[in-house]
Each structure stands twice: as structure tokens, then as C-alpha cells.
Design a protein around this nucleic acid. Structure first.
Length: 560
RNA sequence: UGCUCCGUAGUGUAAUUGGCAACACGUCUGACUCUGGAUCAGAAGAGUCUAGGUUCGAGCCCUAGCGGAGCAACCA
């Protein structure tokens, strides 16, 4: 027996625990993740993936990957590979259980035939708008279709002919015969099969009729032996239909159970696949994997790790409350993760030249600097130091305000891993007001690790030797929208809230030479600045880094 | 004016058979630091949507309201 964890479990996990204890379905746990291949996975899907695969893993069960491909008009093969890649990236595996709803088209068709024979389904010859108005409204019961009592043999004949391609799309549908007066709209003789002549990406033109979601999902669960069918809240109202269909299908005591949880919402972004597609098509972002996108490929390119995403999802939990999560929690999760594993490096984003006037011009020293103070095991590296260096423009002020700990005329500051320097003078372009060069002297005895190294100074700066620096482009990403809930504004289109400053491209950034060999997706902490990762576009000689997330900055906060 | 679901600090979650409302993020202090950003310590912040009821005792149970979300695609 494993020792029980004391952490509280979600209501879903509690259901699973109870079901196991009661011996339901022989105590099996078998879940499924059922994406529709019509777009890229986003962090909201990650929440479902972590639950589906996570519960199976934790309770010794299995989780199937099942593509929900019942609508050939909307679905494309191109998405299938990206979906599989993203799930694997998160660290989950479905082994050989890669299924498709279309695998079951034959069995589903047979089941439909069976329902017709049992008088539980009928072909309706009416057009969509008539069927729709006959359905009534949530407050008013529906009316029976004139075809509702049509003989089974007639429906059967028509259904077969529908599938032969004899009838036009939209001319006839197959409906379950349930209850036109049900307070639940989904029980008012739902359409279960429609005619579609678009070829299917897997079954080609074998079929001319395709099952609707409601007629496929629960039955597929049943065919696969799924025990816990976990989905989002909006399917709650479908559950009676799910149960009704499974009841008609069942041949034993085994029953899959649908449980609904809240979807993931994040502030300052949108999660709708349709809108994300619009952003891509309209060029508001540079593709599905734009680092500003909440897609898994976007987050990956941005520098997020799978561990950080799982941690975040773990933190927000599963409930039935429609919640809007704060991005700062996501940012906390990635900082927390990268803090332990990202090597520290020096990168000057907005360089200004600093000349150490008493340091020999031709001299170069190799400074030994820790790769990660959080983890001595990560070792150290040599960083060249010389008389001309770059520091951050922000790190010098001609007229510093109170509590400014950085460099200004007459003050001292520590160059991280090197010497203490004192600003003696500076050169300013009188036209632009821009500082062009800063002149300092250094204290040779203050070298890190040296005899007088213990001397305290208020500030420590990062720096890069000018002659050794490698040039790079740095992309500063910020939230995609400047409104907390861009999609929730009734009056305004979400596009109105696109943040014009969501991407700032910096050229001519100066990085320490060790970064010259950085490979795409390598992650670093640019000390005092933030976490960065080499972009897919990065190549030796033309380096590109993405800012994943900035470090917390109390100075910046003080200035507000 | 139907049905279903949901209302706990700013945000997200806890509070296993009713027992002084807890944790994380965020915010604010302070300490420490060769990352102002790590870390550590501490603080503020809800009396659990409202009103009744049951009970010695209710966030948990009951009733009635109020508020929010979802449901009327040949989408999933």
C-alpha cells in the first residue's frame, strides 16, 4: 500500500477514488483525451491533458488519445501531428492507443440502424430551419416532427440511401426519438446523423453520413472501455443524452461516467480556437507558435517548460467555478522552474560604453563566474574582462534620484564577478542628451575573491567586454492584450484590446561570448534582467533571444 | 421569466462524519545578498452573496431570494 498523500484532491479525483473503492467497472480507471483536429492545442487543453493522463497515471490506469474527427468539413490532418507533438512535449504518452472517432463509424452506423429498428430513431425530411423552430425554446416545449412516427422500415430504407449519397446535404437527418417536451433542449429528438459529402481525412468517401458529437462521444467511450470521461462544464447539459445513449447501447454493467470541470481562463489573453485562428490569419501574430500565443507551441517557443505548465495547472486546480486565472501565477511557475535550472549569463540589452581609464588597454582577464548560485553543481565559466565594457543604459544616471543604487558621477559600484569601479566622468551628446561614454577607474584590489573583495558597495551591475561581446537580437514579449478580459466585452471586439507593445525587437544587444554557441530553445537567465531562450530563428552569427519572463524588479516598481 | 450548474480575502483553491476560515499567487514591510530581481522573516486583506431556519455550534444541512454562467449549430 502506498502512503496516502495529504494534499487535498479535486472533486473529480474524489469521485475516482470513490468509484475504485466501490468497485465500479471492476475498479478500473481508464480515461481519454479527445481533441478535435481543427486547431493547435493551447494551455487550456493542457489542463485537460494533465487531468486525463494524470488521473490514469496516478491510479494505475490508462489514457487513450482519441481524435474526435466526426466532421470532415472542419478537420484537417495537419493538426494531428502538432497535437501529438504537444502532448508528448508535456510528458505524456498514450502508447499504442491512438484512436479516432472515425475508427468507429461502422459500429456507430450499426447502432443507429439498431435504434431505428427499435423505434428509437427516425429519419426527418425537414430542412434545418423547420426542425429548429419545432424544437421550441428553453421556455417553450417543442413540437413533434410530422416524420416522427414514420415506420421503422421506411426510416431504415432512407437512412441507407442517405449513406449511398442519394440525397443532398441538408435534405434529411437521422434523429433520436426521445422527448420533444424535455426541459433539456438536447433531449428534444437530437439530430444524430447528417449527410456530408466532403471526403473525410481518414475514411475518404466511404461514408456520406456522419455522426454528430453527441452520438459519437459516449459510444466511443463505451467501445474503448473508458471509465471516466472528463470534459469541460459546457457539456454538463449533454450528460443526460450521453447517459441515454450509453443506456441504449449497453450489454453489461460496465458504464463510462462523464464528469465536467471548469475550463482554464487566463486574463490578458483569449482561449477560443476560432479567435486564435483569426489572429494568425489576420497577421496580428506571427503564426500559431508566436511566443505571445497561449498555444502550447507558442509557450514552448517563448521558453516555457512543460514542468512549469504542469506546476501552474496543479496550482489552479479543478472545480466547477468559472474562474479567470491570473497570468502572474503562470509567470511565477516559470520563474520558479527556471530559477533552479537556467544558467546565469550576462546580456546587455541597451548597451552604453564604459571605459576603465586605469585598466591596461591590452589586458584581458578571464573572470571565473558561477553558472548558477542556486546550484553549485552547474559549475562556472570564464568571462573575459577588459578596459572597455558595455553596461545597461539604465544602470547609469547623471542625476540619480534618492535610493538609486547604480552608477552615477562619483559613486562606486561592483561589476559582478570583477571589480569595483568608480565613475569619474562621462560624455554626453548635447544634441540628443544621450550618454555616449562613461569613464571610470577601478580598484585593482577589489577583484572578486581577492583580498579587498569584501568591501561593500550598494549596487552590482552586469557587464560585457566590448571587444569580446557577441551581437544579438532580443525580442521582448509582453501580454498580447492590454485588457484583462478582451473577449468578454459585449460592446467591443477583442481585437480592439490588442497590446501595441506586445513585441519589442531590440537589435544590437551585447552578450557575453559564451552565448555565441546557444542553440534554439536553450534557456538562460540574463542576470538582473530576466529569463530568455534562444529562438527558433537563432543561428550562429545571428543570434535571436526571446524574453520568456522578466525578473521581478522592485526598482522599476518603486519608480511608478 | 423553463432547465442545469456555480457564488469562500484582489486572483485561484482548501477547510475528509457540522467545531475559532487555511494555502498559493499578488500586494506591503523588514532582513540578507557580488542578481534591487534569489532567499528568509513578517504584515495587511474575507467572516464565506442575502435573509430566515435546524443545532450548544453552520462555509458545510434546509427554505426562499439575489447574482453569475451555460442550454434553443445538420459544431465539438
Amino acid at each position: 500500500m502506498n502512503e496516502e498523500s495529504k494534499a487535498p484532491v479535486s472533486f473529480i479525483e474524489q469521485f475516482i477514488i470513490d468509484d475504485i473503492r466501490e468497485g465500479k467497472n471492476d475498479g478500473r480507471v481508464h480515461t481519454r483525451f479527445p481533441p478535435e483536429p481543427n486547431g493547435y492545442l493551447h494551455i487550456g487543453h493542457a489542463k485537460a491533458i494533465c487531468l486525463d493522463f494524470g488521473m490514469a497515471e496516478k491510479y494505475g490506469g490508462k489514457c487513450n488519445l482519441r481524435f474526435d474527427d466526426t466532421n470532415p468539413v472542419k478537420e484537417e490532418v495537419e493538426y494531428i501531428d502538432s497535437i501529438k507533438e504537444d502532448i508528448h512535449w508535456l510528458g505524456f504518452d498514450w502508447e499504442n492507443r491512438e484512436f479516432y472517432a472515425s475508427d468507429y463509424f461502422g459500429k456507430l452506423f450499426e447502432f443507429a440502424v439498431d435504434l431505428i429498428k427499435r423505434g428509437l430513431a427516425y429519419v426527418d425530411d425537414q430542412p434545418a430551419d423547420i426542425i429548429s423552430t419545432q424544437k421550441g425554446t428553453p421556455t417553450r416545449p417543442g413540437q413533434a416532427s410530422p416524420y416522427r412516427e414514420r415506420p421503422a422500415e421506411e426510416s431504415l430504407d432512407l437512412f441507407y440511401r442517405m449513406n449511398e449519397g442519394e440525397f443532398e446535404e441538408g435534405s434529411r437527418v437521422l434523429r433520436a426519438k426521445i422527448d420533444m417536451a424535455s426541459p433539456n433542449m438536447h433531449m428534444r429528438d437530437p439530430i444524430i446523423y447528417r449527410i456530408l459529402k466532403t471526403p473525410h481525412h481518414r475514411t475518404g468517401d466511404t461514408w456520406k453520413v456522419y455522426p454528430m458529437y453527441d452520438f459519437a462521444h459516449g459510444q466511443c467511450d463505451y467501445f474503448e472501455g473508458i471509465t471516466h470521461s472528463l470534459c469541460t462544464l459546457e457539456f454538463e447539459i449533454h450528460r443526460p443524452l450521453y447517459d441515454w445513449l450509453v443506456y441504449q447501447l449497453k450489454t453489461s454493467d460496465y458504464r463510462p461516467r462523464q464528469i465536467e470541470f471548469n475550463r482554464l481562463n487566463l486574463n490578458y489573453t483569449i482561449m477560443s480556437k476560432r479567435k486564435l485562428l483569426e489572429l494568425v490569419r489576420e497577421g496580428s501574430v506571427n503564426g500559431w507558435d508566436d511566443p505571445r500565443m497561449p498555444t502550447l507551441c507558442g509557450l514552448r517557443r517563448r521558453g516555457y517548460t512543460p514542468e512549469s505548465i504542469k506546476k501552474f495547472i496543479d496550482l489552479i486546480g479543478y472545480t466547477k467555478v468559472e474562474a479567470i486565472n491570473d497570468v502572474s501565477l503562470l509567470e511565477h511557475a516559470i520563474r520558479d522552474d527556471l530559477n533552479l535550472r537556467a544558467p546565469r549569463v550576462f546580456g546587455v540589452l541597451d548597451p552604453v560604453k564604459l571605459i576603465i581609464t586605469n585598466y591596461p588597454e591590452a589586458k584581458v582577464e578571464e573572470m571565473d563566474i558561477d553558472n548558477n548560485p542556486e546550484d553549485p553543481g552547474m559549475g562556472s565559466r570564464k568571462v573575459p574582462f577588459s578596459n572597455e565594457i558595455y553596461i545597461e543604459r539604465d544602470d547609469f544616471m547623471e542625476d540619480p534620484p534618492h535610493k538609486y543604487f547604480r552608477l552615477s558621477p562619483g559613486t562606486e559600484v561592483r561589476l559582478k564577478g570583477a571589480y569595483i569601479i568608480k565613475c569619474e566622468s562621462f560624455k554626453k551628446n548635447e544634441g540628443s542628451g544621450l550618454i555616449e561614454e562613461i569613464y571610470c577607474t577601478y580598484d585593482p584590489a577589489s577583484r572578486s575573491g581577492g583580498e579587498a573583495a569584501g568591501r561593500k558597495v550598494k549596487g552590482t551591475l552586469h557587464w560585457v567586454s566590448a571587444q569580446h561581446a557577441v551581437n544579438a537580437e532580443v525580442r521582448l514579449y509582453d501580454r498580447l492584450f492590454d485588457h484583462e478580459d478582451p473577449a468578454g466585452q459585449k460592446e467591443d471586439d477583442y481585437r480592439k484590446f490588442l497590446n501595441p507593445d506586445s513585441l519589442k525587437i531590440l537589435k544590437g544587444c551585447m552578450l557575453e561570448p559564451s552565448l555565441a554557441s546557444a542553440k534554439p530553445s536553450d534557456k538562460f537567465q540574463f542576470q538582473r534582467v530576466g529569463y530568455f531562450c534562444a529562438d527558433l530563428d537563432s543561428k550562429p552569427g545571428s543570434l535571436v533571444f526571446n524574453r520568456t519572463v522578466s525578473l521581478k524588479d522592485t526598482w522599476a516598481k518603486m519608480r511608478k
